[in-house]
Design a protein around this nucleic acid. Structure first.
Lengths: 369, 369
DNA sequence: CTGTTAGCGCGTTCAA
DNA sequence: TTGAACGCGCTAACAG
């Protein structure tokens, strides 16, 4: 516990070598005598030595920090995402710096935060979680070669940016199709704000399923919400007021909106799912405890979190070429690989699949777990 | 956007002064010619200059990073807390580094993480959120003069540690008292794990209210849960099995457990609140959307988050003495103040008050918002 | 394989 | 009120 402030210097003295050598083993360089390396490593952890990130960052020109740009820190999906991220970070030499934009108002531009991140040169890369409007800024960063990964929510397909997302269209398709299979024909859809790509994708999935069933999309059955319970309430009220043309099922683009849907339906003296079936989207931890338990589309958030940070770390430290130059051919390939500029590599797009979680709210007979 | 890498050097040249002077205005030193200062400041933000945190940390021996030690990153209370923290951090020159312990297992010891935090000397202080078992370690840190604030959950009252918490006892007291006022006499309490101070405090509040009403605590009505829905389910099942001695109200020590209580009661064909009233604890965002809407005790998490980080920042940068040395007396006081060692200051304890949020689940006639 | 020499960008002495 | 010089702890060229 009395880990005062051991430096490379100290280790070097104890091991009887120069600081350079210690630095080398620290950075996993191959060119160190195995015995020496072993001895140094031993001394290091027996002394409880950790290099100063500040110093190594300064000297090496690279940082050991990853910036996580979180737009809406209190969004219910965040914890699960962060859990995935933390798992990976814990196993890496990197630390996570949390940049929370939008701690106050919604309309705030992120550019100043981004500017600051870059200018302080504090982080080696950025993971942008639900970047929303600032996607453009970020894309520019990417083009300049700054390691950056976006977590979902890509507007105007930024081709040159790497992202990890979920198959929103397929998720919405599955949800809608499930309702159709239950015999529903009048299925309403409450969208999220159209400025988000996910809203469009989910709407598309909804349309696809209807089209497949030969049903035309009725404009009155498609309302725009705000992802929040309030929006769900308002839209549902509107839907229920059209007495003779009420839908028999409502597919909300977020669980939060679905909560508003559920309570509004109840307030109208109607029952879920007997009178109206409801499906949400996200599978927020609470949804299984809703009454009735909410059928919803689960996004593999934990997995997405892991994959996104893994991808980012990979962009920062490109994995070593495993091929050893035993012969001309492989030597040549190694040369090529090392000669090639690594940064403007082709962007990686990872789209994970969603899954429909069937619970009581959609009328299926399944148990609610 | 092309904020490449402007250094103090550049600013100094543009302003026609030495780097030292620029550094001075950066650190808000008073001994700079006002005109010069103004000019430099202007150039700085017209150039979009931000000092390198790494370099200034190295040189100055102090960091601009705050470490947030979060034990259970996916705990539903976290987002709201983080929102408060982010708000304050955004307004400060500090950044937040997220140390998530327990990304995997529960029993993991935090000491290695703490060790790492200290050894890398990366952070200027630590905010420990729900530190749980590692409180002892942290207390030691405090004693060594390291700036540290604990967010709630203090076990074995660590006197020399500063913390921010909520008045758990009063919250539980209010909840129980409310039930008593509704006429309930057999009130069960589902505790959280007893290793957490909050569990004990809430239990105490429960007992106090009963005692005040002249009711003895019945051991069969006090069960130990795990803060999770599952625990709520199990305990409720146990309570309901004692047919003739069923409670008429259940006070759960967390909203999550209350969800389990609600669903179990429903499964038993009973109604809330007609047959059994339910009150939870925390006021998780979702609780207002539960069916029936959950009466609960709200902790001012956002405020607590703000206060805790503010306190920590204050410990790191003790506020300047405002008194200017215009005369002998004040000059003397200034001297004294500056001579005194700042670090081992007396610990600050902030306890914010909770509030009962009455909704449908406890049988009050109030609307559920 | 190893040591030596320079800095990284900034804060902090000093002296002016 | 200002500037020059030194060093924080480490990495990155070089040479050996």
């Amino acid at each position: 516990m009395t880990t005062g402030k051991i430096t490379i210097q100290d280790i070097a003295q104890l091991a009887g070598v120069s600081k350079t050598t210690v630095s080398r083993v620290l950075n996993q360089r191959p060119d160190v005598n195995p015995e020496t390396r072993e001895r140094i490593l031993q001394i290091m952890d027996q002394q409880g030595f950790f290099p100063s990130l500040a110093a190594s960052g300064l000297a090496g020109g690279r940082s050991r920090l990853i910036g996580a740009l979180v737009s809406v820190i209190h969004w219910p999906l965040i914890p699960e995402i962060m859990r995935g991220i933390a798992e990976v970070i814990d196993q890496s030499p990197y630390e996570l710096v949390l940049y929370s934009v939008n701690a106050g108002n919604d309309q705030k531009d992120y550019s100043d935060v981004i500017e600051r991140i870059l200018a302080t040169k504090l982080t080696a890369g950025i993971l942008a979680i639900y970047p929303g409007q600032s996607a453009a800024h970020l894309a520019e960063l990417c083009r300049e070669g700054f390691p950056l990964v976006m977590f979902d929510d890509q507007i105007n397909p930024p081709e040159d940016i790497s992202w990890v997302g979920a198959d929103q269209k397929a998720g919405a398709y599955a949800a809608t199709r499930h309702l159709l299979q239950q015999g529903h024909r009048r299925i309403a859809h409450i969208q999220g704000p159209l400025q988000f790509q996910v809203s469009l994708d989910r709407y598309q999935g909804y349309c696809d399923a209807l089209a497949e069933a030969g049903i035309e999309v009725e404009p009155e059955l498609v309302l725009q919400g705000d992802f929040m319970p309030t929006g769900g309430k308002e839209c549902t009220t509107q839907l229920l007021q059209a007495l003779e043309k009420r839908p028999t099922a409502i597919f909300a683009a977020s669980d939060l909106m679905a909560y508003g849907v559920l309570s509004t339906i109840t307030e109208y003296g109607l029952r879920v799912p007997e009178d109206i079936a409801v499906i949400g989207y996200d599978d927020i931890p609470f949804s299984r405890h809703a009454q009735p338990a909410l059928t919803t589309v689960r996004q593999p958030l934990h997995e997405m979190g892991k994959r996104s940070i893994e991808l980012l770390l990979q962009m920062i430290d490109p994995p070593e070429i495993k091929v050893r130059p035993w012969n001309h051919k492989s030597a040549l390939r190694l040369q090529d690989a090392m000669a090639a500029p690594v940064l403007p590599a082709s962007p990686v797009h990872i789209k994970l699949s969603t899954s429909l979680v069937v619970r009581a709210s959609c009328g299926a007979t399944q148990h609610s777990l």
